[in-house]
Amino acid sequence: MPLDAMKDISDDALLVLFANGDRAAARALTLRLTPRVLAHAQRLLGNAAEAEDVAQEAMLRLWKVAPDWRQGDAKVTTWLYRVVANLCTDRLRKARPLPLDAAPEPLDTAQGADAALQGAARVDALQKALVRLPRRQRQAVVLRHLEDLGNPEIAGIMEISVEAVESLLTRGRRALAAELAGRRAELGFADEHE
């Protein structure tokens, strides 16, 4: 089956096809889910090489669980976000703290050079502030504001109540704002208000 024909098929239906030996489903799931898994891992870890390892491991676990997957039980992405978070937690526990001036990852500079540089600087500043947040606050903020998920889904991924998610988000945003407040002029925010 061509990949185009699979764009309207849900993730869990593709996973069932995968379990039945459909190679096109394997390719479709790889192309659809690996970017999300990688981006999430990188936002939680702040490290590209480690994020790649986590992404590959998370996808491997997905392939292995495919024969036992029951359609309708849970969203595949919800399951994956949870696996990624657990893998990242394991790595962060074992790893030494990241240096505060860790270099940002190479960024896409397809947009205008100035805007790209400013955007890159903002991403870099946010990433450095994110890795200083407590782990659960970071996870909640990333899921809400970078993965664009709703609070109920975040609650499902983190296996906590919606109220607890809201509390983590409030504290996380406040900490991020405090962390970034001193760099506004440097990051181009002063220009926007003039």
């Binding site: 390719r27 590209a48 790649e52 992404a55 946010l126 945003r173």
Partner: peptide, 27 residues
């Protein structure tokens, strides 16, 4: 400022390399 940071981060999401996609597909 936070909204601008989040927007920038969403548009600069890491993209998987061809090598990573190949490894995932091989698995």
């Amino acid at each position: 400022a936070l909204k601008a940071h989040f927007e920038a981060a969403r548009s600069h999401a890491a993209r998987p390399s061809e090598a990573l996609l190949a490894r995932v597909l091989a698995d």
